[in-house]
Design a protein around this nucleic acid. Structure first.
Lengths: 228, 228
DNA sequence: GGCGGCAATATTGTCAACAATTTTGACAGC
DNA sequence: GCTGTCAAAATTGTTGACAATATTGCCGCC
């Protein structure tokens, strides 16, 4: 995430000047629920905190709204977006398409050996870790998988869209991991995906990733009342 | 396009106040190359033209930049984005994933009979129209296909992403149609996609749509020097 | 003609003030 | 306690001025 935000700034050669710093920080806080859903955002307060003009904050708000992270209501201000269940379903449907493509492109474009280290990471030691309910290590592994695929896919447009989606859903994804049996299932799925990727079977890897996101969506729908 | 822009305004209950009007108009001009790539956009001039504050224009610029339609350079202003070949390739890769998902969802969600009228539209009379090099009718049919799929897919997040992508690529897509044989190929492909959709074969429809976008990308790459 | 220097001009970025709108708090009445 | 009214306070939206930065035009020199 931080890397992607940084790469965007680099790519635009500082196009947004001070906005990137503010934007990156607000994205982080919103994505992590440091600023939780429903919280109002005050222009002047943020301008003071970040030492920028109010105009700069308003500029940033435009971008945050476009990324679905906040909602602005005329004359009333901005609030951090609350995700409703139907919107989450929509996000999963889009995520399914984009992450499947990410995996497909990564498989097609990556040189041999790219996925060896990750395959080890998702190996027997991780199974043992999960048996002890250590979700941190699993989460970190999934994060690493994700980053490596994005890098290998080598598509900045896709990368940005995935980041944007992730900003909006990461706390939910984190909660999903806690559901009994979900992590173990996800683990198996990632192992299969990686096996297909190592074998260079892009279409199969894509199909498996698609199934992985669909199952996440199913878990969300089955446990919806505990998650929201 | 106009409908989607309108639906966004409705959904947010006027969240952006006057920004939507300005945003919609600038999107239209940029997408259609009324404001062609490379053209500078002057804040004060636009503020005067639209009768809004300069702050409102800057707000809109933030959004346009987030949608990839303009680039802003500190202290120098905004210009309409020029699409380089590698960025176009990236856009095609993303488009492939999203439009395939659009078609898949549309197939899964639409009631029987939804695609009958479109199938007729892409029928023998359109073949005859194309034989006379009447691309307008074909383009209109593809547009109608697209809109109907977006509506049937019933996913606002996906819809917005597709709109955003289309804004950025529509002039190129229009040029592609002119290439000798491209429209005829596209025509066949749409007929096949619609057949799969009518048969309720979501996965097959998706595969065919994917192939359709991939072939568009191939045509772009083969005729790149004539198109840019 | 090309280059450099410099002033004039244009444009963005910021600031402060104020208009417009909304929210909050205090109070009275039921 | 709840509701309505009204003033005070808070916040957004706009405006104009000006600082900061970049561009353009003019002139002189080689």
């Amino acid at each position: 995430m931080a890397e992607s935000s940084q790469s965007k700034a680099t790519r635009s050669a500082g196009a947004r000047g001070g906005t990137d710093r503010v934007l990156g920080e607000l994205r982080r806080r919103i994505a992590n629920h440091v600023l939780p859903p429903g919280v109002p955002l005050r222009e002047q307060d943020l301008a003071t905190e970040f030492g920028v003009s109010r105009a700069r904050i308003r500029d940033t708000f435009g971008i945050l709204e476009e990324r679905g992270l906040i909602e602005r209501i005329p004359n009333r201000g901005a609030v951090v977006t609350r995700l409703e269940a139907d919107k989450i379903t929509e996000l999963f449907e889009v995520r399914e398409a984009l992450e499947a493509q990410m995996v497909r492109l990564a498989t097609e474009k990556a040189p041999p050996g790219t996925w060896d280290e990750l395959t080890e990471l998702f190996g027997p030691s991780m199974n043992a870790t999960l048996a002890e309910n250590d979700f941190d290590a699993y989460e970190e592994a999934v994060h690493k998988f994700r980053q490596q695929c994005i890098a290998a896919a080598d598509n900045a447009v896709l990368s940005d869209l995935l980041d944007s989606l992730y900003d909006r859903t990461q706390m939910l994804i984190r909660r999903l991991v806690l559901l009994p049996g979900r992590a173990q299932e996800g683990m198996r799925q990632h192992q299969e995906i990686l096996a297909a990727m190592r074998a260079g079977e892009a279409e199969e890897a894509e199909r498996l990733k698609r199934a992985n996101i669909r199952s996440a969506r199913d878990w969300f729908q089955n446990y919806q009342k505990y998650l929201m």
